[in-house]
Structure formats: structure tokens, C-alpha cells
């Protein structure tokens, strides 16, 4: 009997605590989340949000710590690359190759747009439950947190895990057709975001002889293909002979990633706090 009484008192305390959690703590966390995410979304300069003119341009000089065979200057305007200048020193004859975007062309970095859209969806979810909304159950909060976290994880994943592409996919992508003068047929270019960095990869190719004894095995999808990867393009079989990768940190992407991580942790902590109570009220909407 004493055990039962103790638990009854305990229960009362717990319920009080839970009520506080629902009514005060949740809103505090939501407010905090909103602030962080708004800060994050400010980093993605939204071109469509205002009519104050085109978004500002940022120049990034790409290089690698090792050799300087490839140098690139990329201009980022919001989520699109508006200009690109790539200099490539051919390894064999030290000949210098230069190519740039055509004037009228822009290349959209889908990763940035997706991340931005996911964040604004998360913000939309959060604002729909403002201070005036009364949470009645923990399940409700969990559901909201799940939805927000899904958007945030997606936003972060879009930046941290660039798409794995096969070489024919890279060859078919519109990026190769953006340049003036046109890219030589033995070059492939790919641009992507990896974490907080803007990366440019240049693949040099050579054709495999049709009667070559080399075992032809087409390479699968990868973010960065290594030399020796083979693929079939048109009627030709090609092999990657050299890979050059250069990159540059985009400071505001770094900030955004930090904000994502912090807000994800906040969400998870709130979820954990609520879940603690679930073991006390099993099978009840708590």
C-alpha cells in the first residue's frame, strides 16, 4: 500500500511537470528554433522574396592545397552560378586551357535551392504553432518535431551528401554545354556543394580502343570518380585519365550548417524530454 501511495504522489508531481513542459518549455524551444532557423534562412539570400533587384554576387577562387593544375573563379548569385572561369594546365604538354560560362547562361546549384526550401518549410511548420497555440498532448509535440526534423535533416543532407552521379550522367548534364568556347570532348566538369564547400571537379578522358584487352567495366555512381573509371558514351568507351578537384569554403553555408545542427539537437532534446513521460503513461495519448 505504501508503494501505491508513493507512486500516487509521484504521479501528481510528474503530471505537474509534464504540464509545465507542454505549456511553457515547448513554446520556449519553438521560439528558439524559429530564431535560429530564421537566422539560417537569412544566409540563403532569397532572390524571389523581394523585388529589390538581383541578389548580390559573390566570387570564390577555387584551388587545392596540392598542385595548381586547375584554377577556377566561380561567381555565385543566390543559388545559381552566374559566371565561371576555369583554367586548366594540361599535364602532358603544359598547355593552358581556359573556358568560361557563356554570358547568357546560369547554372543552378540545386542543392542550395533544396536546402533553402526545406528550411522555409520547417519555418512554416514552426510558425503555424505560435505562442497562442495550446499543446494538449505530447504526441502532438512529437509529431510536430518529427515533421520539423525531417525537413531539417533533409536540408542538411542536401548539403552534406552531394548526389552520386555516373559518368554518363555528368556527360549528359547541362553543365557541360554551358561553356564558351565549348568544352573539349575529352573533358567533363562537375560542380557541387559538399558540406560548406563549393567543389569543382574536372575529369580528363581518353578513349579506350575498341579492341583493347582491358576489362571494360562501367563505373557506378560516385561523387568523385577516381582515375581509371570507365564508361560508355555514345558509341565510345571512355576512361578517366586524370581527376582534378578544387574547392572553396562558402562562409555562409558553414553558418547555415551550424544552425541546422544546433536546431536538430534542440528538437531531439525536446523529443527526449517528452518521451521520458511515455513510460509512465503507456498506451495513452500523453
Amino acid at each position: 500500500a505504501t508503494v501505491m501511495a508513493a507512486t500516487a504522489a509521484e504521479r501528481a508531481v510528474l503530471e505537474e511537470e509534464f504540464r509545465w513542459l507542454l505549456h511553457d518549455e515547448v513554446h520556449a524551444v519553438l521560439k528558439q528554433l524559429q530564431d535560429i532557423l530564421k537566422e539560417a534562412s537569412l544566409r540563403f539570400t532569397l532572390p524571389g522574396s523581394g523585388t529589390e533587384g538581383p541578389a548580390k554576387q559573390e566570387n570564390f577562387i577555387l584551388g587545392s592545397c596540392g598542385t595548381d593544375q586547375v584554377k577556377g573563379v566561380l561567381t555565385l548569385q543566390g543559388d545559381a552560378l552566374s559566371q565561371a572561369d576555369v583554367n586548366l594546365k594540361m599535364p602532358r604538354n603544359n598547355q593552358l586551357l581556359h573556358f568560361a560560362f557563356r554570358e547568357d547562361k546560369q547554372w543552378k546549384l540545386q542543392q542550395i535551392q533544396d536546402a533553402r526550401n526545406h528550411v522555409s518549410q520547417a519555418i512554416y511548420l514552426l510558425t503555424s504553432r505560435d505562442q497562442s497555440y495550446q499543446f494538449k498532448t505530447g504526441a502532438e509535440v512529437l509529431k510536430l518535431m518529427d515533421a520539423v526534423m525531417l525537413q531539417l535533416t533533409r536540408a542538411r543532407n542536401r548539403l552534406t551528401t552531394p548526389a552520386t552521379l555516373t559518368l554518363p550522367e555528368i556527360a549528359a548534364s547541362g553543365l557541360t554545354r554551358m561553356f564558351a568556347p565549348a568544352l573539349p570532348s575529352d573533358l567533363l566538369v562537375n560542380v557541387y556543394i559538399n558540406l560548406n564547400k563549393l567543389c569543382l571537379t574536372v575529369y580528363q578522358l581518353h578513349a579506350l580502343q575498341p579492341n583493347s584487352t582491358k576489362n571494360f567495366r562501367p563505373a557506378g555512381g560516385a561523387v568523385l570518380h577516381s582515375p581509371g573509371a570507365m564508361f560508355e558514351w555514345g558509341s565510345q568507351r571512355l576512361e578517366v585519365s586524370h581527376v582534378h578537384k578544387v574547392e572553396c569554403v562558402i562562409p555562409w553555408l558553414n553558418d547555415a550548417l551550424v544552425y541546422f545542427t544546433v536546431s536538430l539537437q534542440l528538437c531531439q532534446q525536446l523529443k527526449d524530454k517528452i518521451s521520458v513521460f511515455s513510460s509512465y503513461w503507456s498506451y495513452r495519448p500523453f
Binding site: 494538449k136 498532448t137 504526441a139 502532438e140 512529437l142 509529431k143 510536430l144 515533421a147 495519448p285
Partner: peptide, 11 residues
């Protein structure tokens, strides 16, 4: 009109 005895909805 909605139901009178509405369950608590979680979403």
C-alpha cells in the same frame, strides 16, 4: 459543422 465530441488530434 464538426463533430461535437472531437478526439484530440495530434496533427
Amino acid at each position: 459543422l464538426d463533430r461535437k465530441d472531437k478526439e484530440l488530434l495530434i496533427c
